[in-house]
Each structure stands twice: as C-alpha cells, then as structure tokens.
Nucleic acid binder design. Structure first.
Length: 272
DNA sequence: CACTCTCCCTGAAAGC
DNA sequence: TGCTTTCAGGGAGAGT
C-alpha cells in the first residue's frame, strides 16, 4: 500500500515526464474519493511538467503555468508511465498524453485516491495539505518536538504514528515495522514515552523508511515497466502480516487497534 | 478541541 | 469446485 516510501519511489520514477508537454487529458472516471475538477483538462492541456515532488503521501506535479497537479494514491492507486501502444486496462481512470508519445496513467481499483489541480501558490492553503505535521523523513524532526505534542496523550503510540497531523507519511504497514525495530510496544501510551525512547523511535522511522525506499517500495507495481514486477521490500517485513512467525523465542502477534491491524512481538516489545 | 468510529471501494483470500 | 462473506487500508466527516 502506498505510504511514504512508495510515494517517494513513484515520484522518482516520474522523472521521465519532467519537462514534457501535455497535449491531451482524458478522464475516464471522475468520481474518485473526490470528483476530479472539471477545469483540469483545460488547465493541463499544453502545459509542461516543471517539477516533481512529494509532500507526505501526496504527489505534487508542478506545471510551468503556476498550477500544480496533486495526486494522492489512496490505498490502491498507481501511476504508470507507458508508451503509445499501451492499451487501457480496467481501473485506468485518468490519462495524460505527452507530445513525446508517453502517457501517464492513474489506475486505482478502489478509488480511494484523488486528483486535484490548484494554483501552486495556494497549495499550502489546501485543507488536505495544511493540517499535515512534519514529514517523517525531515531532518528537522526532533524527539523534543514529538515529546511536547504527545506527553499528555492517552493514545497508544501505534495510533500516534498514524496521525498525519503529528508526523506525516507513516501508514499502517510501516507503523508496525518501525515499532518492532524500535522495540517499543504498539500499546504504550504517548504520555508514557520518555525522550530517549522517542529518539529511538525517530531513528527507527528513518532507518525503516529509507531502507524501504532503497528497495523501491513495498507493494506497488513498478510503474516504469508493465510487467507487474513488485517492489521488493515486502520480503523485508519483519512483523507485518507475519502472525505466528517465530522471532527469537517470541511469536508475532496480531491485534486490532482502532480498527487497524497491528503486528508485534509481545516479549520483545514489552515496555508498557 | 481531541479523540473514536464509520464509510468510501474492489479484489484477494478465507469460509462454507 | 464455486458461491458467499470477510477483510484490507488512508483519511474525511460524523459523532462523542
């Protein structure tokens, strides 16, 4: 599922459309999580891709006309760049056609993602961007910063990691992996975490997310080819989806917190 | 305000 | 084997 590493990997792979000019736009399904704005076609046509970046789990495609295309992959969204002989498949909802014959395709079976077009200068004013906390990979992220925000929190740390208003970019899969790496119980409440363990948590966050990026993301199909090759970090999951797996003399346990599955080792992560 | 729960959707996997 | 049910996950919005 697309979390920070998958989005980062996707953005890097989009470099093939950098500086390319759009000659047409087709919306096959406008009803995603939100409706794709009607004016998007007119704005995008004849514009050029000027810059590619990531904000949390949002893909930002800046155009040369002071507008930015915003794409969120939701849970099942994919972006792929294909050549002119590509035949549209099921759930290809949105297509950009470039003058160099390439196409950019947004495919999303569950339609939980969304596509928006905004003036670049207004990007930070969008409600979905405005509330975001510091990026999980920001070098400016410090333990003190987090401590100040969670030192009174009665919410378990697993849920805190998923709160995009505090730290942006971590999703359900990496939350379990990060807590396992930091040897911190997912059940421990925010207010119980002292600075030293928050430091460890931040260290593990950087380690796990960076490693996942190196491996090309965990579970997204490789947009650079059409062969459906999987990103290969999945095989690096230590606990996610590994219920019952033996680790030392412990076994991975699955619990449900706030309706989300959590995987952890009760003995190795037992600091409640 | 802070927090929890439900829902959006489809396909894979489990259950029968 | 094949049909039916359950589950997965990000985040907005409703509810507490």
């Amino acid at each position: 599922m697309p979390e920070l590493p998958e989005v980062e990997t996707t953005v890097k792979g989009l470099s093939v459309i950098l500086n390319q000019k759009i000659y047409n736009v087709k919306i096959h399904t406008s009803k995603l999580r939100f409706k794709i704005p009607n004016n998007i076609i007119n704005i995008l046509r004849n514009s050029k891709i000027a810059n590619l970046r990531r904000i949390a789990k949002y893909i930002i495609i800046d155009l040369d006309i002071n507008y930015s295309l915003v794409i969120h992959l939701g849970m099942s969204g994919r972006l792929k760049t294909v050549s002119s002989n590509y035949k549209r498949i099921k759930h290809d909802h949105f297509i950009l056609y470039f003058f160099n014959k390439k196409k950019l395709i947004y495919n999303d079976p569950r339609k939980f993602g969304f596509i928006d077009i905004v003036k670049t200068k207004d990007l930070q004013k969008q409600k979905y961007i405005m509330g975001l906390g510091i990026d999980a990979l920001s070098p400016n992220l410090t333990a003190e910063m987090i401590f100040n925000k969670i030192s009174k929190s009665e919410v378990p740390i697993k849920q805190i990691l998923l709160n995009q208003k505090l730290i942006a970019g971590i999703g359900n899969i990496y939350a379990s992996e990060i807590l396992f790496d930091a040897k911190i119980s997912p059940l421990i409440l925010g207010k119980k975490l002292e600075i030293s363990r928050i430091m460890k948590l931040i260290k593990s966050t950087r380690k796990i997310l960076k490693k996942a990026i190196q491996f090309g993301g965990s579970s997204i199909r490789d947009y650079r080819s059409t062969d459906g090759t999987l990103g290969n970090f999945q095989s690096n999951f230590k606990v996610y989806n590994k219920e019952g797996k033996k680790i030392g003399n412990d076994r991975v346990k699955k619990i449900v917190q706030y309706g989300r599955s959590t995987f952890y080792c009760p003995k190795l992560q037992n600091n409640n």
